[in-house]
């Protein structure tokens, strides 16, 4: 029982505490788990491309795969990188080089590099990545993780086994939440559970994060507490911004945008993705939604081309003000 006690001394974030350590414990992705288990059995695998929405198990699968492949040596044989964080492909390349320089530990045939948010890399950077993948392929296997596999260049896709992670079903998320609630001694009300499923939108990580924060308010998980907690993680802001613009209040919309960009630190691309997600939930006519989606697309394109993302997003909001009328 000493282990349990030790865990109690330092309580980890629940997404870590309850992250499945074994492939077989990953929920809702049976087709993928079976293929990955096969790699473990044979001890060999190609490069992998994990595609799917956030919070469905991509990172967890990569971690679990390494743990099963390497056992206690997994930390030495596994390198986690983030494409959006590593300041360019050169930094990534250097880190890969450094990591690939040494042999795998514990008799494994290769090391694994997990590159999160691979779709954040530009086309040019992806070309460079492809060369890097080839250069070290005798020693290293890449697991590339992304939301949309279509954003990954063809030559990389063709070098990877592609795994499409499905959005999680509510039953799967509910099952896990109930296990956690039981284990943590929480009273998860039916309304609370429904609220969690509603805000999670199939994202297990968000569901567990919100559950943990709600549990910090009260051991009884009510829908009210869930919504209070979830409202802090606000894509609400983006929606609010769009509504201001559609109501013709450009200045208010612009202020909101600046707050989101500068204070909350979202990138222009993040904002435009959120806008696209929200546009179909707005209280406007169906043809208008289509028009707005088209505008969002146009300005997404301009955002990539232009120099100041704020200018482009403001211009997009100005388009909203005339289409809203």
């Amino acid at each position: 029982m000493s282990e349990v006690k030790e865990v109690k001394i330092l309580e980890k974030p629940w997404v870590e505490k309850y992250r499945p350590g074994k492939l077989r414990d990953i929920v809702g992705q049976n087709h993928i788990v079976r293929r990955l288990q096969h790699y473990v059995k044979t001890g060999s695998m190609p490069h992998l491309l994990f595609a799917g929405p956030p919070g469905v198990g991509k990172t967890t699968a990569a971690l679990a795969l390494s743990k099963e492949l390497y056992g206690e040596h997994w930390r030495q044989n596994f390198l986690e990188l983030n494409a959006s964080d590593e300041r360019g492909i050169n930094v990534i390349r250097e880190k890969v080089k450094e990591f690939a320089r040494t042999k795998p530990i514990g008799g494994a045939g290769f090391k694994i590099i997990f590159l999160d948010e691979s779709d954040a890399l530009t086309q040019d950077a992806q070309q460079a990545l492809r060369r890097t993948m080839e250069m070290f392929s005798n020693n290293v296997r890449f697991i590339l993780s992304c939301n949309y596999s279509s954003k990954i260049i063809e030559p990389i896709q063709s070098r990877c086994a592609i795994f499409r992670f499905r959005p999680l079903r509510d039953e799967d998320v509910a099952k896990r939440l109930m296990q956690i609630a039981e284990n943590e001694g929480l009273e998860l009300t039916e309304e609370g559970l429904q609220a969690l499923l509603y805000v999670a939108e199939g994202d297990m990580r968000r569901a567990i994060n919100v559950l943990q924060a709600a549990a910090a308010l009260d051991i009884i998980i009510t829908d009210e507490n869930v919504f209070t907690v979830a409202s802090r993680a606000r894509p609400e802001d983006v929606r609010e911004m769009m509504v201001h613009a559609l109501e013709g209040n450009f200045l208010k919309a612009r202020d909101k945008l600046r707050e989101i960009l500068l204070k909350q630190g979202l990138s222009g691309e993040d904002v435009i993705i959120q806008m696209h997600k929200e546009v179909f939930n707005l209280p406007i006519s169906e043809p208008k939604k289509v028009k707005l989606a088209d505008k969002i697309g146009e300005y997404n394109f301009r955002l990539v081309e232009g120099a100041h993302e704020m200018i482009q997003l403001e211009a997009l909001l100005a388009q909203f003000t005339i289409l809203g009328k």
């Binding site: 956030p54 990172t59 983030n82 999160d116 990580r205």
Partner: peptide, 10 residues
């Protein structure tokens, strides 16, 4: 083990 956007939400 998160991306930036996920970390912002968390």
């Amino acid at each position: 083990h998160m991306s930036k956007l996920e970390a912002i939400e968390t």
